[in-house]
């Protein structure tokens, strides 16, 4: 593992702001394209960060995305302050959702987000403290070995 960062950037996400939801992911996608990340990884990373951003908007008070790129890895870390997830195994099941009507009107909240992030990522870790918040580590390998 190299400590040499190609890029490290932080983005704030505001909870409940449905109007701006997705803006951070759109910016991150543009950055990844600009720095020449493989297009298939750009898509997988963009889908993952968009799902994660929507989760922050829908469920948390606020959140932060840290995008870090080294020659080996693309790492998206999402940390939010909010209600957290009491039962992570349940939240990881496709179709499980606690979404409100407003969230579903946005086209989200079908219980597909977290499973879809896991499907797209090369490595995925989730930790949560109910009442405090949730942290996601979404990692993509940039060299061929370990890549999905």
């Amino acid at each position: 593992m190299s400590d040499e960062y190609v890029l490290s950037q932080k983005f704030k996400i505001k909870g409940g702001d449905f109007g701006k939801a997705g803006r951070t992911s759109t910016s991150i996608k543009e950055i990844l394209k600009e720095i020449g990340i493989d297009p298939s990884i750009v898509i997988r990373a963009s889908i993952s960060v968009y799902e994660a951003e929507m989760n922050v908007v829908m469920y948390a008070k606020k959140g932060m995305v840290t995008l870090s790129v080294t020659p080996e890895e693309l790492h998206l870390k999402l940390e939010d302050e909010g209600q957290g997830i009491a039962d992570i195994d349940q939240a990881m099941k496709e179709g499980f959702s606690t979404a409100t009507h407003e969230m579903r009107e946005m086209g989200f909240g079908a219980g597909m987000g977290l499973p879809n992030i896991k499907k797209n990522a090369d490595r995925f870790e989730i930790t949560s403290i109910p009442g405090k918040g949730t942290t996601l580590d979404i990692i993509f390998c940039l060299n061929k070995t370990g890549n999905k």
Partner: peptide, 9 residues
């Protein structure tokens, strides 16, 4: 689809 989660998946 009307469900963006499905479109993303």
């Amino acid at each position: 689809s009307d469900l963006m989660s499905d479109v993303l998946a």
